[in-house]
Design a protein around this nucleic acid. Sequence first.
RNA 1: GCGGACGUGGCGAAAUCGGUAGACGCAGCGGACUUAAAAUCCGCCUUCCCCUGGAAUUGCGGGUUCAAGUCCCGCCGUCCGCACCA
Length: 837
Amino acid sequence: MQRRFNPLEADARWQGVWDEKQSFKASDTSDKPRSYVLEMFPYPSGRIHIGHVRNYSMGDVLARFRRMTGHEVLHPMGWDAFGMPAENAAMEKKVHPGEWTRSNIANMRAQLKKLGFAIDWSRELATCEPDYYGHEQALFLDMLEAGLVYRKESAVNWDPVDMTVLANEQVIDGKGWRSGAPVEKRKLSQWFLKITQFADDLLEGLKGLDQWPDKVRTMQENWIGKSVGLQFRFKPVAPFDSEIEVYSTRPDTIFGASFVAIAADHPIAQQVAAGNAEAQAFIALCKEGGTTAAELETAEKLGFDTGLTVAHPFDPDWHLPVFIANFVLMDYGTGAVMGVPAHDQRDLDFARKYMLAVERVVAADGDEAKPIHDEAYVGPGRLVNSRFLDGMSVEDGKAAVIARAQGEGWGEGKTVFRLRDWGVSRQRYWGTPIPVIHCESCGPVPVPKAQLPIVLPEDITFDVPGNPLDRHPTWKHVDCPSCGKAAVRETDTLDTFADSSWYFIRFASQPKDRPFDRETVEKWLPVGQYIGGVEHAILHLLYARFWTRALQHMGQLGFAEPFTGLFTQGMVTHETYKSPEGAWLAPQDVEKQGDSIVMVDTGAPVTVGRVEKMSKSKKNVVDPDDIIAQYGADAVRWFMLSDSPPERDLPWTESGIEGSWRFVNRLWRLFGQIEAGAEGADKPLDRKLHQTIDGIAKDIEALSFNKAVAKIYELANAVEKAAPSASRNGAIRALALLVAPMTPHLAEEAWADMGETGLIADAPWPTVDPALLVDDEVTIACQVMGKLRDTITVPNGTAKDELERLALAAPNVVRILDGATPKKIIVVPDRLVNLVI
RNA sequence: GCGGACGUGGCGAAAUCGGUAGACGCAGCGGACUUAAAAUCCGCCUUCCCCUGGAAUUGCGGGUUCAAGUCCCGCCGUCCGCACCA
């Protein structure tokens, strides 16, 4: 009778035990070292995706491992529960967004529980509950009071059919993604958070985040987009009468300027167009130009000569033409630039087309000033043809021009950021209501904190377009808190990125009467290890960093960075299949027949496509529920951690999960092999065990789960081959502890089977005997001219001259040397001997 | 175009500081057990050759070194991010 692990029975039983004993409840008062392990909380779409399983399996291994190594671990879970899909579902399925969301949460919670994650469920939260968003409203009011929130007119994408604002990615070819109606630009009064106030600090802070992937830091750096330069004014040459303000990061090249270019929607361009049909036509042309990446790349630099001229700041007799140009953007800098063709590629392309002067003003070091042809020179060098700047470096030249401009009053040094303030107004129902009341006489008035939370009304409808809050018969009508007259509530709700900007703080501390308790939060935060998808590299992580800074700025928290360690895991991928007709096929609709893949029902040949991210449209998805039902949670978790490095994509394969399932059973058989009477030490096995304990601990801390998995296999192989002994029994017991973070149900089952009374989840990580980490015999490579010719086995620490002697005597070395005497002998102790002839 | 990451067997990969390339897993092949299958166990598994051994081999071409997957220079390719940012 074979010992076979019954996962369905064991999974449920141990999950019940952990639940009942509250094994993973984090104590705020423990004096153990603390460890906050967090994975990005999911949007409750209704089903857990295999990518979630990978994400949470990784975090769970770390959380369980840290518990075993004596940490008090906070490993919580919650729901990013506001957002559009709930409203879409409401429109399509006539179900209330709250009902839809809450039932999705219930489903997904059950799915997650089936995976046996070591989560403190007592801290579970959903951002759509007043108990959460009410506190968010309080934080919003704090920010308002601290001057971090303001209201501004801003252009939005307006869908006139759905009567709603669309995000940029919801506008496809200028049309609303749902209604298909042409999208209008509308000016709306919107709420903004002053993220730009922290722009420099957010940029500087990146330098200290050395446990973040460089990739993410670079992406944030580019997003913040700091540039340092000179903002200055060109004086008009009569009859023209307006100054043109431009921004340049290269004021040092000012003597190479040959034109000024303004954006098509620049006020001066508008003035010119007022009496000029040609200019009007050109501006229209600029606007209809595509905005996609490919179009922009190939778009020709086009300009329209306004006939106007301005004077060079250093020479009133030097006149520069003013062009309207399609490559100048109104919303960056001042919407106008000085064109220096020799040192900017776009300006050069433009100058060649309109036959403008190209004069080199920077000479590369050690190089005479060669004329510029098709390529602008943007490198460092000395300034030439630049009057008082001649001979200066680029850096000195910048400083000198800025100093002169400031001294003479026509310009000033200025730092510009690409980062914009964060517009948080959404004209939607399913979000956090913005706690402000608009009063005709008092203006926008903050809701008194005592009146929070402002709860979303339940009785709403989605049968007509527009925001249900706005058309609700009573909800928005309130008295002004300031003057008492009739007023209306703000009907916009907050961007859902606001909800995810502080949930990790609320996890640490959940008082009823305020957002969090500072002292408790500071015990847990910053989050030591945050794990999630790279798709959140910019927005979510930047907003959370801002929000934390805002709290610090307001004196509510004592730290600026919310996440010390960040890890971005790869996607789960799967082969794709297509029928002869070209339709995508699901994995369960195809089967292997000999060397080819065919359709299950018709037997028609299937084309196997590339391995791609799992997506519903390509049907290459597997459902975690099905897999768990078939193999149990542990086999799935094991597979998620095996083979591929966690930052890389993981190809899901049927044979891979089969292999994991086989190994789970192999471990289970092994756990039953403790022999009561076995005695004696097995030194090599002891060594292997202790090296494995040490190695796995390091691998898990480095999140190199694939390497930890490989070491488990090696140890299991070694234990299987070993003869019964006390050492072997010890190794089997230790193996259960080593796999406990990865396959916890199996480990608990084995632990109980071994007669242990406590939970393995509470057991300490096995201790390492440092004496056993080194082998007492080592294999030395014997090389001749760097080529391996033989190996010798010697005691660890054998002296150099002894190694040299033994290597020279090795049979294959003797044969290759053929009597020759080595000119030089390199000996690396415990490693190799290399003979040079 | 700019920035970043990566490139190792049929596949996923490993290789601490430059020191025996391919650990470990998957697939495959051969065998044992079985009436048979599944499960399990044992063995083989980079390529080539004149096979007790030898040669080549970490995308390609150079270089440094006693020694290069690892360091340097130049190409090629794949993926990701940003993008007319002045």
